[in-house]
Design a protein around this nucleic acid. Structure first.
Length: 371
DNA sequence: AACCTCGACAACCGCAGCCGC
DNA sequence: CGCGGCTGCGGTTGTCGAGGT
């Protein structure tokens, strides 16, 4: 397949466009349409390659381009679409009128991606980066030392010792939950095994887009009928402080009952019960232009989403990614209605940074496979 | 005032896929 | 069916301005 000759090989101009070039290009396209991009520069009297002209037009000169800062809603849309579509910038741009794929891509790389990283969220998978979890102090302490007289299970009053990594992960999650309850929050604790499950399945499908909603609506250890919601953009509020020192100082904060109910959650995780009851879907109603505060049922959600999928080249199958049967529609999030309404990105990021979960799980757990 | 660093964003590069011949 | 041209896409680089030292 022959490649288009490079601009400089043809003596064509590269680099920033001048106002005169812009004017020539705009005038030509307004008169004749762009037609063949290959022949356009010659016809328009531009010393540019067609590729450069097309890029300039589609990314900058097009009359329907919306310039300026991304709105909060646009940012929200980008994050959600990215969690579903991945780096399909053109597909994402198709859902953001007036925004170009290049603009969205740049915005993602310079703003959103960095923020997610600071929040301990992998911007690729949209899942928590467990490598950042700071369990090391807990695990390196004498509490988890086989030779020690003290062990976590005794400390917590558990009948069974924490005999394996899975138990420890549960403990980590319990830590989250306990502390979050103290803050009178709706946060529901990350089910680390859920992440394992979700990630492995998603990766098998070569769809490394962990469902972001799993982050903002995670199973609560103490109930299997959770319907409370956490706003999507409050992801900052959903990653939590884990203070191992507090645990060490006040180990009675960890209700053992959660351990049992965790098992129930895990047991149903692969079936509809888990997702339907514990992972309400986010409100994508904005796709169809409905009010942000509206609450849609699953059918409308799926309808909206299907309209997205069907209009792209993706053979995306939403249920397959969600691993969620369509039965038992749960109440859906209306996270948009409960945003932190900080008007600036800095405020939002500040809010975020104060709530970042910081955990490190040493390799002795072999939990890197989770990440 | 000069220099340096960093962030933001425009533009380029190279690949993949589509389509006509 | 294969080839070649063209377009679109995603990753990367280059440039410029703001802020800090």
């Amino acid at each position: 397949m022959g490649r288009a000759p490079c601009c400089d090989k043809n003596g064509l101009k590269k680099g920033p466009w001048t106002p005169e070039e812009d004017q020539k290009l705009v005038e030509y396209i307004q008169k004749h349409g762009h037609g063949s991009w290959r022949t356009l520069p010659k016809n328009a009297g531009l010393q540019r390659c067609g590729k450069s002209c097309r890029l300039r037009w589609t990314n900058y000169l097009r009359p329907d381009i919306k310039r300026g800062r991304f709105s909060f809603e646009e940012e929200e849309t980008i994050i959600q679409l990215h969690s579903v579509l991945g780096n399909k910038w053109s597909a994402i741009a198709a859902r953001l009128p007036g925004r170009t794929d290049n603009e969205i891509k740049n915005y993602w790389n310079t703003h959103i991606r960095k923020r997610l990283l600071r929040m301990g969220i992998d911007p690729v998978t949209h899942s928590p980066r467990l490598d950042l979890l700071d369990l090391s102090s807990l695990l390196n302490s004498s509490l988890y030392n086989n030779s020690s007289q003290l062990n976590i299970s005794r400390l917590l009053g558990l009948d069974q010792p924490l005999s394996n990594h899975s138990d420890l992960l549960r403990l980590a999650a319990t830590l989250f939950s306990s502390q979050r309850d103290d803050q009178n929050s709706n946060f529901v604790l990350p089910n680390l095994q859920e992440y394992q499950y979700s990630n492995s399945h998603v990766q098998e499908q070569n769809q490394n887009q962990f469902q972001f909603q799993n982050l903002h609506q995670l199973p609560n250890c103490t109930t299997s009928t959770t319907t409370t919601t956490t706003p999507f953009s409050n992801i900052e509020t959903q990653v939590l402080h884990t203070n191992v020192e507090q645990f060490q100082a006040n180990p009675t904060n960890f209700p053992c009952q959660q351990d049992l109910e965790w098992d129930e959650n895990v047991q149903t995780m692969h079936g509809s019960t888990f997702i339907d009851n514990l992972v309400p879907l986010p409100d994508y109603s904005f796709y169809s232009g409905s009010d942000q505060s509206s609450i849609v049922d699953r059918s409308s959600y799926n309808s909206n989403f299907n309209s997205i999928s069907s209009s792209t080249d993706q053979s995306f199958n939403f249920p397959s990614v969600l691993s969620t049967p369509s039965s038992s529609p749960p109440p859906l999030n209306s996270y948009s209605s409960t945003y932190i309404t900080s008007s600036t990105e800095d405020e939002r990021e500040s809010y975020c940074s104060n709530n970042v979960l910081k955990f490190e799980i040493p390799d002795i757990f072999g939990v890197n496979e989770f990440v």
